[in-house]
């Protein structure tokens, strides 16, 4: 394994993608505000996208398909962010807080 040409092997990209997924899950459990959770979700999206791109570059017979899929992931992430942020604004207007611990009106 030549370290100088590590960028020509899929392994390091896959490990970085697994690390991004792990940090996203960690933030999703640990964060206490809705925006922090949204940022962790974006990290998970990025991990999926990087995984697709790595396997697309090294193991796919059609290198355009993975790039098109990564583009679709970016579009869906943008739509998701728009919806989630509008929900956050609406929640903040009703509760004056977006701390996930205080949104307990339905808590029995």
């Amino acid at each position: 394994m030549n370290l100088l040409h590590a960028y020509e092997q899929a392994d390091i990209y896959l490990i970085v993608a697994a690390f991004l997924l792990a940090t996203g899950v960690f933030g999703l459990i640990r964060r206490r505000t809705l925006i922090g959770m949204l940022i962790s979700g974006e990290l998970i999206f990025s991990a999926a996208s990087l995984n697709f791109m790595a396997l697309n570059c090294f193991n796919a017979p059609d290198p355009a398909a993975g790039q098109v899929f990564a583009l679709f992931i970016m579009g869906l992430a943008a739509a998701e962010v728009a919806i989630v942020l509008s929900i956050i604004i609406a929640v903040y207007r009703n509760y004056r807080s977006i701390n996930a611990r205080e949104l307990t009106e339905l808590n029995g």
Binding site: I35, E42, V81, L85, I88, I89, N99
Partner: peptide, 21 residues
């Protein structure tokens, strides 16, 4: 998309909603 649109939109929401823990 991510830096130009998503992060700037999140910054807008941060300014509107004071989300500091």
């Amino acid at each position: 998309i991510y830096i130009g649109a998503v992060c700037v939109t999140i910054v807008f929401a941060v300014m509107l909603a004071e989300p500091d823990e």
